[in-house]
Simulated assay, not measured.
Amino acid sequence: MTLQLMGCLSSRLTAEVQRDGVRWVQEYVRGVAVTPLTEAGPATGSGTTLTFWPDADIFTTSEFSFGALADRFRELAFLNRDLEISLTDRRCPPESLSVRFRFPSGARDFVAFLDGRTASPGDPGIIGFEREDPQMAGAVEVALRWRDTDEERVQGFANSRPTDGGTHERGFRDGVAAAVNTYARKRRLLAVTDPDLDADRIGVGLTAVVSVKLDVPEFHGAMRDVLGNAAVRACVDQAVREHLGTWLEGHPERAAAVIDRIIHGAHRH
């Protein structure tokens, strides 16, 4: 959320910026600056602090949910490796709630969390990679794991924003299907007469996080939550195809178990 948008949604907002040893302060009322940017003394660190009061004329309720904020901050910490976020609720002193989030393994930790497990950075059950690609003017991070369930759980994000489909998710599914089918055919785990395993069958039991960070994201749909950047699909497809294919080749026993489960799951469905 930009400062301008946050200001428009607030009855009052104070922005404090610490930079180059100086602390700067500016006040806003309903999105309009009511004071100039003013030097307010020395600063020992750097960063920005925003203090705001939600506008009761806009919101039906102005009470913050600690649980909702914690969920979103946890998500942001997963999606931004090594970012540390602290949240403290001091509304009912002397008691207070406080949580801190930091996930050095990024999307890998996110997949473990979604599966209700704790993963170590070297957990061999989770496949993960990152890649920058100038063709899509951005980077992609992917983590995935198959588990013993019929549920598929694939979550997509663009610039740390949850998405409801789009080119990054389609590229991910294309790449997974290509890597799995190529490996299964090479190892003769599929008969010559068997059709390729499609994305729906391969997705059974799959948990995955697909996160892209783009210089200029394009969002579509009624809620502006569908990523539309055309170049992203092919770039994510290629990245997933290569990295998952390398993992399958390097872990033949695990790969055979994954393919076997997919094939038998496909037969059940």
Rank of each mutant, 00 (worst) to 15 (best):
R12K: 13
Q18K: 08
R19N: 15
R23H: 09
R30F: 03
T35G: 03
T35K: 09
E39W: 12
A40T: 04
A43L: 06
L50F: 13
F52G: 02
D55R: 00
E63Y: 09
E63P: 05
F64K: 03
G67N: 11
A68T: 08
D71M: 08
R72L: 13
R72D: 10
F73Q: 04
F78D: 00
L79M: 06
R81D: 08
D82E: 11
S86G: 12
S86Q: 15
R91G: 12
E95M: 13
S96Y: 11
F103G: 02
S105M: 04
S105D: 13
S105C: 13
G106H: 02
F110C: 13
V111R: 01
D133Y: 03
P134Y: 15
A137P: 00
V142G: 01
L144H: 08
R145F: 12
T149P: 02
F157L: 12
R161N: 04
P162D: 13
D174A: 11
A178M: 06
A179W: 02
A184N: 06
A184W: 01
R188A: 06
L189Q: 14
L190E: 11
A191F: 02
P195R: 06
L197M: 02
D198P: 06
A199M: 11
G203C: 04
G205A: 12
L214M: 10
D215Q: 13
H220A: 14
L227M: 05
G228I: 12
V232Y: 01
D237E: 15
Q238L: 11
Q238W: 04
V240I: 11
H243R: 14
H243L: 11
T246G: 14
L248A: 08
H251I: 09
A255I: 09
D260S: 12
H267S: 13
R268E: 05
R268K: 15
